[in-house]
């Protein structure tokens, strides 16, 4: 009687442990690329926070705008001062979820493709996005990656007509992160 209760307790407790498993990183990558005939603009941020609940498939991402590094200092200043207005809107934040959790099994090594849907806030404007993501599971790591496009106009980022040829209307975004377990 006692033994079975102990076993029951352990099973219940360990399943809770699994349920609440969170994976995260503070050194995730977020990069973007604007390509026009006039100019290529590239920027990347290597200190993006990703956190994921493996049981529910929920994903949150937070990137500090001022941490995006550009090749040219002046571009970086213009990005922060004129376009995303980092002093007013310091962070880009994504809050979303894996659509169909049956497509992934975080308890088993493998490569899983899944759609992630959620809301992305840039420049104070939140828009729904649905993107195709890849999750590579193995060795205590979850490697998450996705590519998608963001339209400047969708987030009320105004580009003056004189620079329409230099800055693309639609920006290619790459998100990539190596997540490990969050231990308390």
């Amino acid at each position: 009687m006692n033994k079975s209760l102990i076993i029951f307790c352990i099973v219940v407790l360990s399943s809770f442990q699994m349920m609440g498993q969170k994976f995260f990183t503070r050194n995730g990558h977020l990069g973007f690329f604007s390509k026009t005939n006039m100019e290529d603009i590239k920027a990347s941020n290597e200190s993006v926070t990703y956190i994921m609940d493996l049981s529910t498939g929920e994903i949150n991402i937070s990137a500090l705008q001022t941490n995006f590094q550009f090749e040219k200092a002046l571009m970086q200043e213009h990005y922060n001062e004129n376009y995303v207005e980092s002093s007013k809107f310091p962070k880009a934040i994504f809050k979303g979820k894996i659509d169909d959790m049956s497509k992934v099994n975080f308890k088993m090594e493998g490569v899983y493709n899944a759609k992630v849907s959620g809301n992305l806030e840039i420049h104070g404007v939140t828009k729904p996005y649905s993107v195709d993501a890849v999750f590579k599971v193995g060795g205590g790591h979850v490697l998450a990656e996705t590519n998608f496009k963001v339209k400047c106009a969708d987030h009320n980022i105004k580009i003056e007509s004189s620079l329409k040829n230099n800055i693309a209307e639609s920006i290619d975004v790459n998100a990539k992160a190596d997540l490990t377990e969050l231990k308390k």
């Binding site: 990069g31 590239k42 990347s44 590094q69 550009f70 090749e71 040219k72 200092a73 990539k176 190596d178």
Partner: peptide
């Protein structure tokens, strides 16, 4: 130029 490091 400050080269933005590419994704690993």
């Amino acid at each position: 130029e400050k080269k933005p490091p590419l994704a690993q």
